[in-house]
Design a protein around this nucleic acid. Structure first.
Lengths: 337, 337
DNA sequence: TATATTTACGAAAACGATTTCGTGAATGCT
DNA sequence: AGCATTCACGAAATCGTTTTCGTAAATATA
């Protein structure tokens, strides 16, 4: 069993002091070129890796960021993580990942743990239960920058990376209307999230613009009892006056809609047209191909990470928090033909 | 700007020594119940969080594991991460995530960095370029347990969590044969991976069992030039004597096959039947619904994490490394009807 | 030549928590 | 009462790096 190489070991082998070795490795002007060379050579030969806990303790920097998200099962977050990890790796940072499982309490506990130096910064998409910003402000009071992405808290003082949820929803509903829909339902989860409220407002605005009625029972919140979602959609679609268009706020509800339609014999797009926010690359391979509002997941992850690192570079945090909106793109496909 | 609470601060407020406070927080028998209560109350009130870098340095434990995977864009790894994070969270561990981007050099560099205490253990699925085990053995020489999952290195001494790739591939090809296929092609990436070799062997064995010819030009490796994969599949399918069945080793190649078929007018399943290893929940919604060999991604992630924690609990690492095989399940659907 | 400055390094003090060891006071025992 | 334990705590070393400060020797300056 090998024991790790540390500065003391290098110093002893080279007949130097620990401080000299440390300075040499940091290319300090205090150290002669000769000594630097000797040190670097031995360090390389013995494969010296600095102990991150020791230097983290001393420098009060962890070179680590945290990514806190509700779930990873979603395609959006997979792509976002991909982008984030790539940016972090380029900058020599490490990435801790945490799932809040849509629970505010868990999210809060996770953030709590960051207050004593575990991470230098945080990227977060809030849980469906999160409405308060207290737990996040707690962090920023310890000078830990936080960048929210996708699911953000509006009117908060944190940097935010979002997509144009309102406009996208508006355009999506207009797309349904132009395809002939007159009774359009809105499916969502986590109604308290601003992202969902924005989409709902876009939905409502489009209906009003076209003088269509906004019917309360066509706005379906599928948050609770995840195993009853299918049933709720079925009830919606099999009522006496069913909708002829579905706008789903999340991928999963569109898939459930597809399944319910298979079960009940409702034909897409003939009887019902479907559009949803999604990041599925193979939406075009579905039966029928699914019209999506595709969020720029990779770009948003990339922007979030870049913004965070900018905050970490300027020691001054968020004198002027940056809010960035990256537009989604509507891809018309078979489900709204 | 608040400054973090540390033991010194607690000690001062309580008129105690730092060591007494530390012991009280660890419920040491040396400390009186009264003092413990005082300490715990103040710690709670001031929201004391121990500095992980200080205690990590002292205890030589990071309470952190690393997950090293080739890509996260795949559904398999999303689900595996989900399981891993959940297990880790239960046990109070933190999860660092790293992408090797299918590069051996990157994978090696990532593992290098773990040699000085950054993590207590590693979960890994190797890159497509990885054939040597040296960089992993390096880690175990520093008493850092490694559990490989899904893409493992055969005949290595590390704990391994796999699925039954050989049998699954065999059954998949038999399924194609029973559905009427006689000219079955095998699509893969990363041919050097044992996981792919096992699948290939299963494919070959099934063909031999049914006295079908194993044609070299029906074994297509799409590893290089990712943007030529589509072209390679097209060439395969439009040759004079094209295959009537496709067995794809990874999800993505099946999707590309679908797209090529749309372009070329080849009908699935009439002209061509398709089966693939996949973790897509909505395979049944594709056009046509896709027959899959579904890998137990969540279970494998769960098993890998559990195995790693078992190794971390017994200080004795891998006196007898555990190999676990969790079977995949074949779901017959429209693409092989 | 005498003084000032630069060069190149080492000693030691941090960082915050843990742990070993030591010790005065309280308690037990005979 | 006299001795041995136990109790409850504090001092100090330790983990490995970084960084401040101090200082001999070498060089530059007047």
């Amino acid at each position: 069993m090998d024991i790790p190489i540390n500065l003391k070991r290098l110093a002893k082998d080279l007949n130097l002091s620990v401080s000299t070795v440390s300075k040499a490795l940091h290319d300090s002007y205090e150290i002669s070129p000769d000594t630097k060379k000797r040190v670097l050579e031995l360090a390389k030969k013995l494969n010296y890796i600095p102990n991150p806990y020791a230097s983290g303790l001393r420098k009060k920097k962890s070179k680590t960021i945290a990514v806190v998200i509700p779930e990873v099962a979603d395609n959006f977050f997979s792509q976002a993580i991909h982008a984030i990890e790539t940016v972090a790796q380029e900058r020599g940072y490490h990435v801790l990942i945490y799932l809040s499982h849509e629970s505010y309490d868990k999210e809060k506990a996770i953030l709590q743990d960051f207050r004593n130096g575990r991470v230098d910064g945080v990227l977060m998409s809030v849980s469906g239960e999160t409405t308060s910003t207290d737990h996040i402000e707690d962090l920023t009071r310890y000078a830990i920058p936080v960048v929210l992405f996708d699911r953000v808290l509006p009117r908060s003082e944190f940097a935010k990376i979002t997509t144009n949820d309102y406009e996208s929803a508006f355009l999506a509903v207009r797309h349904l209307i132009e395809a002939g829909c007159r009774k359009i339902a809105f499916l969502s989860i986590s109604p308290s999230l601003s992202i969902n409220q924005d989409r709902l407002k876009g939905y409502q605005a489009a209906l009003e613009e076209y003088k269509l009625e906004v019917a309360e029972h066509f706005i379906v919140d599928c948050t609770h009892y995840p195993n009853r979602q299918s049933e709720m959609i079925k009830n919606l679609l099999t009522q006496p006056l069913p909708p002829d268009g579905i706008m789903a706020s999340v991928e999963k509800l569109a898939f459930l809609t597809y399944q319910v339609c298979v079960e009940t014999g409702i034909r897409i797009p003939n009887d019902l047209k479907v559009i949803c926010f999604s990041n599925l690359e193979i939406a075009s391979l579905l039966n029928p191909s699914l019209t999506t509002i595709t969020q720029p997941a990779f770009e948003m992850g990339n922007a979030a990470a870049t913004t965070l690192f900018r905050a970490l570079d300027n020691k001054i945090y968020q004198s002027n928090p940056e809010n960035l909106e990256i537009p989604s793109i509507l891809f018309p496909r078979g489900s709204t033909a």
